[in-house]
């Protein structure tokens, strides 16, 4: 029911939500450096782990088992995790602050905008930011010769999909949070995902049972999706990844929209 009602909101015609994006653009005009800095984190990781440590590794089995240079292996995974991290930061810490301290949303609700518009608008903003980072990172990958397949054209949309899935679920989780300390729980989930989703080493490294578990986790979908696209290892499993992340995002959005109604319209 709620999911059905939300679907039309996600269509780009949702002009009311976009006004919230406009608000965030105003804010970040004052702090553009913060925006810019978000681009450097995955770049630093690529240079340090990809090239620095990569020199000690050489090649590593790629998504289809063929050995590929380590840089080629880790770069797409860094993009996928950066998309997750960016979306999580915006949808948890920043969202919690706006919801509980800044009272930004309280004022907005006195205008024709509804809680659903706010949820979609905030998510859209996180995605626009994430999309810019992804684009920047893909350019870096091109410069370093780390894009070897024309399928890589789908990398930026995939990064957006990862951002959508994690951003929506992050907002849903945040709508249940009471204090800043609850955010330890989020880090407790995000850090293992970052380290163990076949980000830095192939999934085959794990014993078979663990492999099954990792294959069920959300960041793995994103890592495998983007890595397969950049090296051109296309298979039907990629559609499963896309479906997984889409469903995750819509569930998150449905939950957060309902929670915001409850939290803001009292």
């Amino acid at each position: 029911m709620t999911a059905l009602r939300l679907t039309p909101l996600l269509i780009p015609g949702s002009r009311r939500s976009m006004r919230l994006v406009e608000r965030n653009v105003y804010v970040y005009r004052h702090t553009w450096l913060v925006i810019l800095s978000g681009f450097f984190e995955p770049l630093f990781y690529l240079l340090s782990i990809g090239f620095g440590l990569g020199a000690l590794i050489g090649t590593i089995p790629g998504p289809d088992g063929e050995p590929i240079p380590y840089q080629l292996f880790v770069a797409p995974a860094l993009l996928a995790s950066a998309s997750m991290n960016g979306a999580i930061n915006e949808s948890t810490f920043n969202f919690f602050f706006k919801l509980n301290y800044n009272k930004t949303f309280t004022a907005i609700l006195s205008t024709p905008l509804s809680p659903g518009d706010i949820a979609v608008g905030e998510l859209a903003w996180a995605l626009i930011r994430g999309g810019l980072y992804a684009l920047g990172f893909v350019v870096v990958m091109l410069v370093f010769g780390l894009v070897v397949s024309p399928w890589a054209i789908l990398v930026v949309p995939s990064a957006l999909l990862i951002g959508f899935a994690f951003g929506a679920v992050g907002m849903a989780a945040t709508s249940f949070m009471k204090t800043w300390q609850d955010f330890d729980l989020i880090q407790l989930v995000i850090l293992p995902l970052f380290l163990f989703s076949a980000t830095f080493f192939p999934i085959e490294t794990y014993p078979p049972v663990l492999q099954v578990i990792v294959r069920l986790t959300p960041l793995y979908q994103g890592v495998d999706l983007i890595r397969s696209l950049t090296v051109g290892a296309i298979s039907p499993i990629l559609l499963v990844h896309v479906a997984y992340l889409s469903v995750m995002g819509f569930i998150g959005l449905a939950v957060v929209s309902r929670r915001l109604d409850k939290l803001l319209l009292t």
């Binding site: 380290l195 080493f201 490294t205 794990y206």
Partner: peptide, 22 residues
């Protein structure tokens, strides 16, 4: 988490390479 992922997981591939650097 870090010792498992980077030390054991990734470490397996580093040791394959040039471990005299370490």
């Amino acid at each position: 988490l870090f010792l498992t992922a980077m030390g054991l997981g990734l470490g397996a591939y580093v040791d394959d390479g040039t471990s005299e650097a370490l």
